[in-house]
Design a protein around this nucleic acid. Structure first.
Lengths: 347, 347
DNA sequence: CTGTTAGCGCGTTCAT
DNA sequence: ATGAACGCGCTAACAG
């Protein structure tokens, strides 16, 4: 075929279904080659002013949008970060991811987000599909992952950030706080207040349970008094906070003392229920929440809570990654951002 | 070089920095070609049981994870959907996206999510970068987009889903409800209740303002009474709900009537403030919210609100897309999912 | 059932 | 300052 050709020609298949404008097409229109278009986009200073102008005109005329897929394949940098969170409707994770996304976006990265719903097996599967996108980094919530997941992560060779929990031996980078410490601190806070009875209401998260367990253990150690515990497997809601408090009162005869809730939402519900039943907050029953959510200081009574700086987690994680991308030789492996008890009126 | 070769050999560059295992490598280990590996993964029935086994062994041994970037480039199907929402920390959008994601994930798609923060210019920029990822579809919040954005979207030729608002002439597919109608319905509800005075508190969203405007206009038309309006540019919070109610009482002398809030969060704050000042809800002041959020039925008094089925938006959007991917010839262009007034005790 | 060949659209050399 | 050639890792025909 092509018998008369002097040099082998590449067959250009008839482009019926337009798949989108290519750099090649832009170049043709501007009278330059594809590479020049590429350069004009990645580093305009490498192209003469005249051709740059023509290229920009061609881009405008064609509505060209670069194909990041092809770019990623060629350069093996995807400008993509993937992130796994237990739940995107949980404000705690959403706020963290928002701060992270904003910072990363400013640096030219985009975020592929998935929910794992607290299930390690689901997390493992999701990690695999995320890795197939060849992200430039991956962000995980928590520090507990299946062995297979760890293996895949390590094998991928990409930076891994674990947030929202803390360990001295992270896979790679870790930004978080010690959940157990929050429980201990709350127990100490209760004892200092003079509480001699305590209960807990927790929901949803494995980390919430760890906080609760630490609270109970420490409170019992300090006072010798056992702690009544109400647990919900499902996510925290105001309704469950109410139900938890109702059970504490009805089933455990809890009518005086402090209630440690694993989230402000639960605390809010608990306060509503106790108030409705005529208990004084914090006079009869004191309540301490977790998260310092938007509403915590504005309901009645304002909720005493444990605050963690969600935005800081996101920002710090992004900054650590960005530094790593720039080839920092001394990676910040583990950062404990701590927490703070915000004393308001509910306890 | 390679002087003695009988046929041209492809130069295999020395792979020092392992970029990840390839199908080629897996195939070598299994004693088959790269394509066979590809087939084993995409359609195992096209491969003999024996080779399938060997390939799976090789995959397990190497920890191979397919490169979706390369796959997308070759097939021009990315299995990626990108989505734009005003805010990911707003439960309304988060819940919608969650439902959408889950459905799409079951079908093998992943979601690239970005926040646009109610800014059309930002949306336009974000659409461009999203389009560069060559998604199989794009989901937008709302129906108002810049002309340039519309052009890019149309030019891309990919399915576009607009959610959370309704128009008869969508870019492509539209799933939502008529915000103006909710305001009208609330006004009618108020008049039927016998309210002769009304006020509004709104925040954040352009659509919230449209709901509010429709409420005010309709209420005034029905009763002849003007409506006091409090607006916040920032997002809805309990604090702003309280402040809004405070201003209504202090600045507008509003001590009796109904308050239409653009979100349950605002309504919650408004109720707290009014209650604290000794007003009876709904006896003195009635409050109606929007969203039927998790807590709406569990605070005191339970909040009367306008409910829209967020999960249904997400699911329906996903289903419409999936049907479109399967080549449905009769696309469902515009679906109005409506809304519902949930009467509880606050109004 | 399996292999060969030819791109997908771009970044990356290496020339000029 | 610009271009030619090549390959990133995979899917899509087309052979056999």
């Amino acid at each position: 075929m092509d018998g008369g050709d002097t040099k082998p020609t590449k067959r250009k298949p008839a482009r019926s279904a337009s798949r989108g404008v290519t750099m090649e097409a832009v170049g043709r229109m501007a009278g330059v080659s594809q590479v020049t278009v590429s350069r004009a986009l990645s580093d305009p200073s490498k192209v003469s002013a005249a051709t740059l102008r023509k290229i920009n005109e061609a881009i405008a005329a064609t509505g060209f949008v670069p194909n990041a897929i092809a770019g990623a394949l060629a350069s093996s940098r995807s400008k993509l970060i993937t992130a796994l969170v237990p739940s995107i409707t949980n404000i705690v994770y959403a706020a963290m991811i928002r701060a992270f996304s904003q910072r990363m976006r400013e640096a030219g990265y985009q975020i592929l987000l998935s929910e794992t719903g607290f299930d390690p097996a689901e997390e493992e599967r999701t990690i695999a599909t995320h890795l197939s996108r060849r992200p430039d980094a991956i962000l995980l919530t928590g520090i507990h992952h299946s062995p297979q997941a760890r293996r895949m992560l390590l094998a991928s060779g990409i930076p891994v950030v674990e947030v929202w929990d803390f360990t001295d031996s992270p896979i790679d980078i870790c930004i978080g706080f010690r959940h157990v410490e929050t429980g201990r601190a709350a127990a100490e806070f209760a004892v200092e207040r003079g509480d001699t009875a305590a209960a807990t209401i927790s929901a949803g998260d494995e980390r919430a349970r760890r906080r609760k367990a630490a609270f109970s253990e420490h409170f019992t150690r300090l006072t010798g008094t056992p702690v009544a515990e109400i647990d919900f497997d499902e996510m925290a809601t105001v309704a469950r906070g109410r139900k938890g408090m109702a059970r504490l009162i009805d089933d455990h005869g809890f009518t005086s003392g402090i209630v440690f809730c694993s989230s402000d939402v639960l605390a809010h519900g608990a306060i509503i229920e106790a108030t409705k039943r005529g208990f004084a907050i914090p006079g009869d029953i004191a309540v301490i929440g977790f998260g310092d959510q938007e509403f915590a200081g504005d309901v009645e009574p304002p909720i005493t809570t444990i605050k963690v700086d969600l935005e800081a987690f996101g920002r710090t994680a992004a900054d650590a990654l960005l530094r790593r991308f720039e080839g920092s030789s001394t990676p910040d492996t583990a950062i404990d951002l701590g927490f703070e008890i915000i004393r308001r009126q509910s306890a």
